[in-house]
Every structure is written in structure tokens, then in C-alpha cells.
């Protein structure tokens, strides 16, 4: 579904990604783990075409997207949930929800989305940024389920949230996996990652340095502690 190889990315003069390579198969939940500053967010943004300069190859459903504009990448069937959540203050909850363009048939309809996220229905008319942090994260995930995109990029959806909310996000990710979505998930919290993912890639200094199937995560704890410095 997604094949990244030889991906390099730059912010101005700083060369951030150095030949990142990994792949995500249809229906999988795959994480990118790594310390702060390892290049996880930059990898996500590079996939969406949101970095100033990038090179290499990113194939989505067999189609090369490295040279495409962000709106055309989205239309290739990718939904993006950014690290800072990206809820728009000047838009209501409903307007935020309806903002991303439908890129393919088969997205979830509104009743299904409201069934998954009941809070959003209650707060439909509120200003987007008046929601709690957890509700904003739900909204950021909900709005890309509508579009028909089958590959979702979630950048640290649990960051800074209370444990009950983290559990709810975990249930949501398992639910969307069950509905056949493919997910690339950035996480710092590998205990959480373990509860939702099939495979884990580890990033260090702008490179993918390891791949650990979820079943072997328990056995690889020592190695992982080394990578993540926890």
C-alpha cells in the first residue's frame, strides 16, 4: 500500500532524512518509533509533500507521489492527522469535520462517525479549538475517516492526553483497522503502540534502523530501551 525508499528530506540547509525506507501493507497498522527529533514527523510530512525539499521514492498504491503537490497526494488516497492536530479555530466542529475533500468513495458516513465519536455530535456547533485536547484529537482523526482515503497517517495521536483518552484512541485505531483501513502511526509510547500495531519501525537520526514485528516486541525490550533511551 505504501512503499518508501531512499527518502531524503531537507529544511533549508539542514538535511533531516537520510534514505528512509519502509513499507506498509494494506490492512496493517505500522508504527514509527523513535526518540524526539529522530525524524518521524518529517517522514510523515514528506509523505504528504509538506516539507520544502525531498527526494527518493514514495509509492502509494503503486503510484509514485514524490513529485506531486500535497492536494494531489491526498487525492491519491492518504488521510493526514498532524502532530499538532491542526484543528481550525475559525471553523466550527462540523466545518472542521467537513473540511477534508472526499477523495474516493467508501468513506465512513456521518452517523457512523458520530457513533464512533459521540462527543463530536454534542459539540457540533462549537468552535473547533474550544474542544478539550482529547476531543480535538478525536476530531482530527474523525475528519479523515470521511474522505474515502484508505491509508491514514497519525502523528502521535496520544501525546499529552489522559490515560482514559489514550485507551479510547486505542479502541478507535483497532476499530478502524477492523474496518480495513491501513494506518501508519507515529508513537513515542511503545506500550501503547504494542496494543494496536502489527509491526514497528525504529527511527534514529533520520534513518530507519530496525523493524520489529509486534509479536517479538516483548523479546526485544532491551534493544528497544536502548533505541528509545527510556
Amino acid at each position: 500500500m505504501l512503499e518508501v525508499s531512499g527518502l531524503n528530506a531537507w529544511y533549508g540547509e539542514s538535511h533531516i532524512l537520510h534514505g528512509v525506507a519502509f513499507d506498509v501493507r494494506a490492512g496493517e497498522v505500522v508504527t514509527l518509533l523513535g526518540r524526539n527529533g529522530a525524524g518521524k514527523t518529517t517522514t510523515m510530512k514528506s509523505i504528504m509533500g509538506l516539507v520544502p525539499r525531498r527526494a527518493g521514492s514514495i509509492r502509494c498504491n503503486g503510484r509514485e507521489t514524490i513529485a506531486l503537490r500535497p492536494d494531489l497526494i491526498a487525492r491519491a488516497g492518504i488521510g493526514f492527522c498532524p502532530e499538532e492536530r491542526g484543528i481550525f479555530a475559525s471553523l466550527s466542529v462540523t466545518e472542521n469535520l467537513m473540511l477534508p475533500r472526499v477523495v474516493a468513495p467508501g468513506g465512513l458516513d456521518l452517523p457512523t462517525i458520530y457513533a464512533l465519536f459521540p462527543n463530536l455530535k454534542e459539540r457540533a456547533g462549537s468552535q473547533g479549538t474550544k474542544l478539550s485536547g482529547g476531543e480535538q484529537q478525536m476530531l482530527a482523526i474523525a475528519r479523515i475517516l470521511r474522505t474515502g482515503a484508505r491509508l491514514l497517517l497519525l502523528d502521535e495521536p496520544t501525546e499529552g492526553l489522559a490515560p482514559v483518552i489514550v485507551q479510547q484512541i486505542g479502541r478507535t485505531i483497532r476499530e478502524i483497522k477492523a474496518r480495513g483501513f491501513t494506518v501508519l502511526l507515529v508513537e513515542q509510547n511503545f506500550r501503547f503502540a504494542q496494543t494496536v500495531a502489527d509491526r514497528h519501525y525504529v527511527m534514529e537520526h533520520g534513518r530507519v534502523v530496525d523493524m520489529i514485528p509486534n509479536a517479538q516486541l516483548g523479546a526485544s525490550m532491551e534493544k528497544l530501551h536502548g533505541y528509545l533511551g527510556v
Binding site: L50, R69, D71, A74, F80, P82, G86, F88, M98, R101
Partner: peptide, 25 residues
């Protein structure tokens, strides 16, 4: 209107709106 909410959103954060499939240029 929808075009209006898209315009307001793009005023706040144009790159993200583009990553949502809107032809921002």
C-alpha cells in the same frame, strides 16, 4: 458556505488545507 470555511481554514493554515485535498494555489 463550504467555500468560505475552506477559505477561513486556508487563511489559518494553508499547507494543511492543501494536504486535505484542496487545490490551494
Amino acid at each position: 458556505t463550504r467555500i468560505g470555511s475552506t477559505l477561513r481554514a486556508a487563511t489559518e493554515n494553508a499547507p494543511l488545507v492543501q494536504a486535505f485535498g484542496v487545490n490551494v494555489p
